[in-house]
Design a protein around this nucleic acid. Structure first.
Lengths: 91, 91
DNA sequence: CATACAAATAGATACTTGTCAATGTATAAA
DNA sequence: TTTATACATTGACAAGTATCTATTTGTATG
């Protein structure tokens, strides 16, 4: 992962609503409308956030009929661990 | 670390210059003027970036005479690991 | 004290981003 | 096919941020 991709990933994490979205997804897949119920934002804003989270590789999506299901990407943790190794040194 | 602090930490990581600064500090303490040599930014801009990195707890500073020395905080890696645990779940 | 050097602060500006209302697109059901 | 539902896209705007120049503050030295 180069600097630019790392920046994109960190920017994706740098928002309270997106952190809350990740926290909600932590226990498993959820559809957009369910996420929307738990957040105080409008549907277009959620759509915007989900795009950022998916684009940086933190979240996977799966379309099923009208519903869009989101889940934390399997290697999301590894991506962040790599940042520690690359920019902070091993602990 | 609450959401707001996490956001601040991630914002600090979400900039190419600051990533490069961390990379430079990875091998040990450096003074501001040395960092400045390796970056294509002005002194006030570096000062701004260092303030952000210190405020979020990723970087420590130590003043010695006229010089300001910076180093990666001992628990910087732990702070980021905690984000993985909190928002992405254990791997 | 006067000068030089290192870093911080102030103020300005261009750019980015989070948000919403309005609209578009896709899918399912009646 | 018409209607309803779920989500994406567009366009606009306010707030935030990265950067610079100019200035100020702090510290050492002649």
């Amino acid at each position: 992962m180069n600097d630019r991709e790392t920046v994109r990933l960190c920017k994706a994490l740098a928002d309270e609503n997106r952190l809350q979205i990740l926290h909600l997804l932590k226990n498993g897949e959820l559809c957009a409308c369910h996420l929307l119920d738990d957040l105080h934002i409008t549907q277009p804003t959620l759509s915007h956030h989900m795009k950022l989270l998916c684009d940086c590789g933190l979240v996977d999506n799966r379309k099923e009929g009208k519903w869009m299901h989101y889940s934390i990407a399997k290697d999301a943790g590894k991506k962040i661990s790599a940042i520690i190794t690359e920019y902070l040194g091993e602990e």
